[in-house]
Design a protein around this nucleic acid. Sequence first.
RNA 1: GGGCACGUAGCUCAGCGGGAGAGCACUACCUUGACAUGGUAGGGGUCACAGGUUCGAUCCCUGUCGUGCCCA
Length: 954
Amino acid sequence: MIDKNYQPADLEGRMSLIWEDARAFSAGRPDRRDADPFTIVIPPPNVTGSLHMGHALNNTLQDILCRFERMRGRDVLWQPGTDHAGIATQMVVERQLMERQQPGRREMGREKFLERVWQWKDESGGTIINQLKRLGASCDWGRERFTMDEGLSKAVVKVFVELHRAGLIYKDKRLVNWDPKLLTAISDLEVQQLEVKGNLWYLRYPIEGRTFSPEDPTSFIVVATTRPETMLGDTAIAVHPDDERYQHLVGKRVILPLVGREIPIVADTYSDPEKGTGAVKITPAHDFNDFEVGRRQGLPQISILDREGCVALVDNEDYLRGLPEGSEEFAREFHGVERFAARKKILERLEAFGFLERVEPNTHMVPHGDRSGVVIEPYLTDQWYVDAKTLAQPAIAAVRSGATTFVPRNWEKTYFEWMENIQPWCISRQLWWGHQIPAWYGPDGKAFVAETEEEAVSHAIAYYVEQEVISAEQGREMALDRNKREGFITRDEDVLDTWFSSALWPFSTLGWPDATPEVKRYYPTNVLVTGFDIIFFWVARMMMMGLHFMGEVPFSTVYIHALVRDEKGAKMSKSKGNVIDPLALIDEHGADALRFTLAAMAAQGRDIKLSTQRVDGYRKFANKLWNASRFAEMNGCTVPEGFDPAAAKEPLNRWIAHEAAAATREITDALEAYRFNDAANAIYRFVWDVYCDWYVELSKPTLLGEDGPAKAETRAMVAWARDEILKLLHPFMPFITEALWESTAKRDGLLTLSPWPHRTDAPTLAEIAALSAASFGDPLVPPILVSFDAASFKDEAAEGEIGWVVDLMSSIRSVRAEMNIPPSTLIPLVLVGASAETKARAPRWLEAIKRIARVADLSFADSAPDGSAQLVVRGEVAALPLKGVVDLAAERTRLTKEIAKAEADIERVDKKLGNEKFVANAPEELVEEEKEKRDAALARKAKFQDALSRLQGV
RNA sequence: GGGCACGUAGCUCAGCGGGAGAGCACUACCUUGACAUGGUAGGGGUCACAGGUUCGAUCCCUGUCGUGCCCA
């Protein structure tokens, strides 16, 4: 029994349990052992995450593909899991400690803190998984993985060690993006360039050997800078080698104001003569460009800030080297001053001594940490790097060769652009939550990279014995006794970038590095579904790691979907307060409605502007299906055992089979091409416009009429078509379809595991004509290539008949509305000069016509009765005698309009056909088509004119 | 500055070389035995603008204007 009302909330909960109990989404089901695998790995959401609209879209699309392929008989593995999200998670737990006024991370110590994070993960880390289940995600939940679980950690260590051994991971001292709030290095991708209104300060640097005077321009050189506080670490001034203004100064030295350091003026093409004064200060330890200039020019690097972004001059040997007497005092004065306070203080001092020439407002881009939001400091530190340039080569080649393709294609350009200019990837993070780097340092700081501490120890001992740092005897003792080597080597404290482990996701989740059956069966995966914002973060890196370690691309297709925005097109963000919570939408409208909305709006290459109104509309769609199913139930519609829809005799039933086949084909084609919106719209139209509005309506007379073969067949067919709908709609609206599947018949199994409707190639008339023409006269090709198997349902006669009924009814309704004839008024219908075919058809549809078009009775005549409204239906005239019922003037107006319309058509076609070039150049079929249109329009015009003259006579 | 999109009905968006489409909103009518979360009919668009290619351009090309995003 189907409930009277469609209530998504309880129905969706119930279906989730049914699927779970049946383990419906388990990969490797015994009955599919021989099936083709179909694999998708989920983009693992952060454990800290809560389902947002982006997740909802991303997972809806993946689920549609998985359910589609599962119904097509594939062995589907949708691999779920979560990401440990280093910085984000650590921040969440630290915040929690602070809110509860508990000891902070540092006070607790590393071990205790990590315990605490794990505890948090166990308690709260499952939130998003449950939310994904509410959305209907058909993942193989039993295989859920976490980037920091044992198996995945093993993969991470293995990858690190192997890449290090291959020279593709190395330690280097260079500038990194340093986050002075989170106190860690971050990668280029985690830096956001934000436009900031600042100033350009013009500073005078006195030239050595001249007496400095603000009045004497020859006594100094002016440099422009946006970061005056870094002048403490300047080690040169650069001018362009071709800049004539400064030729005479190259090679001379200047005295760094306030500091007193002597620094050279060098010629370097980095300096842009158009910008500022053309002379630029060089601070290699605090600016990426300056760092490169410094390297080229052999300049010292003087770091003048500490980890927290405060000036650090006391005991700073690099800074103090070579400075005049009394510099310590200045150093003490500025030591510990925060960077922005220091900027102000230094500017005041420069101004006081006449070193500040002028200030210009200047808007420029400033790097910010995407997590902390603070200004990033280029900072000189030792970090671990991946040689991304080398790893990128095969990854570029794989996309070039088509081993992996992007959908839509244009994202490949973005991918290439980035991959071809890829920079070393800084992978070490000064955090605690994450995979600790498997490197141990000996007493002299030499690094030993190994999979285990034991292994590192033995490498270290061997090395130091050979270096004669320790004796062979000592070495043996240390190897045997843990206590003896206490403190001999210490592990690197840093952890890896979260994306390092995510990069391994397509194979680490399958059990790699072990040679599991899963790795063999499910790698490479079929498609990756993700947003364009993580092509660099994730997709590119999976490509690199997958190719390097598995020797094969991790996925053959990357489907890039759009961003979900609010209804005005603004990016959803907490600060703007325009976030639409998918869970709230699910509560209100149901997961099915939300999913359908997202799918219907997921046109390739276009962002989704989500409106809740639309979601509500699709809930109504679900309600419509619900009620149509109730109608079927109330009329005893079931599919009898062994029923063959292809054997249906009734034209209406043959017609719906034909339409179902066409819809199947359209939906299947669209899904295969990732055109989710086309697929969604096709099923929507089929359910509402075809099945509900016409098929069910036209079947009512039969269903409500006397028992007999026609009624039995119609009952079976109404149910059969509904089942086809449930299947075709299931990937989009899994809950309601499964629920209706369950409640409308006794079933062998779940809908979600039922076979997808047979993809019948129902060729159009044009296709049949083309095929026949193409094969005509060729003895090797049979006249018609397409075999019309039992399930092909192609039926021109049925299509012609139902098409005529539909057109007739629509026309009558239209005229009635225009004439303002109330539904209560039944009018007679006269078919004028009807063909034999029409004469045969019409009585079959009498009941339906009476009912739907509000017709009193039907008769045939050779000419239209006087004073009747006349319609042209498929070239034949239908008359509605309206004498006394209707305003004849209104009918005259209507006919005049119809005639004008026909004339306009004729005129347009004539213009075309009158154009010699058109006739000469356009394809022959098109010219034929135009001629046919012309004839049809002429005939229509004649009939309306005839009708009009008849009306005049009244 | 470089790159990628996008300007189509009041709104949100499909379509993309041969007669302008959907949903919502709007107007009128209808409680007909699945559904008023419904039905029927209808109004509404020089497809941003200007050139070009073509027999033919909303669609292809160029430019202009406007909007958004990514990278430097």
